[in-house]
Design a protein around this nucleic acid. Structure first.
Lengths: 204, 204
DNA sequence: TTTCTGAATAATCAACCGATCATTTAGTCT
DNA sequence: AGACTAAATGATCGGTTGATTATTCAGAAA
């Protein structure tokens, strides 16, 4: 049980350093020092520096996933709206995080580059939530999607631009929100016009 | 008139070097040497090295644009299909180009980084073509889109992943094609089911 | 024996320096 | 004068070296 505590202590010390100085600028000796132990001892708890970073990212992301799952489970909301919430939560989270602390970007970059499996896990976890929403929508008749997991992948492909916004564009949050709203509408309704039908006017 | 010829000669010499050795590995002196002139003389025809690269890229891209415009003007094809052609042409062009000559990627990267206006011009030119298709579709009743230019932007946003595919993913062409086909269907038809209606089964 | 330390090792990083190259310009040639 | 050259300039690049740091491990402390 002390094992778990020690790991938590290491992660906490590392998180503090990573946010304050960045991943590259904090060395194992400093983390160890903050925990009152020797550098070598860290390796009894983590295989390496990157694994400490991954532990931090995993914890943070699981937090986000919980939030998304709770949102997706909220009753009395249409699937289309849930998808909207889902996409916007993702955009706002990464945008604000990176706005508040530019070093978070460095961490994300390093993990994405060195641990492709981590990114896959994130994408997959999000797809699982979307599939759940689609299944519910199928029962209610709102959507009728044959291959739900593939469709979830397509939605991810179509919203790449909003996943790591400031990684590759310098658009403002409000501009990104306007665009994401438009893309969401397109995905739900399509370009082709539909005959009048019971479809509520969803607004952002 | 000799002025135009000299410019063309310089562009031709530079193109040869850029594809063979890459932008970074060819120097102005070499281009000048190939043209039988001194390095300094190049500056009477182009403001700088990057402008030669831009001239090459512009010529190539205008070629592509012509192709796209011809395709968009082809009669007897539905707007949805034209959009499909349009998106696939873009994907295949960049994919094949970069497959055939990895140095093309370097050139594209440099120009995109140093000449943001060039990228804007490309995006804008493509939107103009899409807007044309949408206008035609409006007349035929296939689509009915209020803000056509914004919608064209949205389509671009939703297909970012397929614009510079190997810039950020290592997916195979066939995988990318399958995804783009799915995204296209989603954009045209939407997630929400439609009552039966005269809509042909468009196939890639 | 188990837990931990701290020195040893090897990989990576950063500052430096000479070389290369884009760009300018003084001057040559026609 | 107008067209061009080639030397001059300053910025950038690539390679080297010393220092920092991740990781290992032989052994000390418990």
């Amino acid at each position: 049980m002390a094992e778990k505590d020690t790991r938590a202590q290491i992660v906490a010390a590392a998180r503090k350093r990573f946010v304050h100085f960045g991943y590259g600028k904090t060395c194992m000796a400093e983390i160890a020092g903050d925990c009152g132990m020797s550098p070598g001892n860290l390796y009894r708890f983590f295989p390496g520096k990157l694994d400490i970073a991954e532990a931090i990212a995993t914890a943070d992301y699981e937090n986000h996933l919980d939030h998304l799952r709770r949102q997706a489970a909220r009753p009395g909301r249409r699937a289309g709206e849930k998808l909207h919430d889902f996409l916007f939560e993702g955009l706002r989270r990464t945008y604000n995080r990176q706005e508040r602390d530019p070093r978070a970007l460095e961490l994300a970059r390093v993990i994405a580059a060195e641990r492709p499996a981590f990114s896959s896990w994130m994408m997959e976890s999000e797809r699982a939530i979307m599939v759940g929403v689609m299944e519910e929508a199928e029962r209610s008749g709102e959507f009728d999607i044959a291959d739900k997991d593939f469709t979830a992948e397509l939605i991810q492909s179509a919203t790449v631009k909003f996943r790591d916004p400031q990684l590759w564009s310098r658009l403002s949050l409000s501009r990104l929100e306007r665009e994401l709203d438009g893309v969401w509408k397109l995905l739900v309704e399509g370009l082709a016009p539909k005959p009048a039908r019971a479809r509520n006017q969803e607004t952002a």
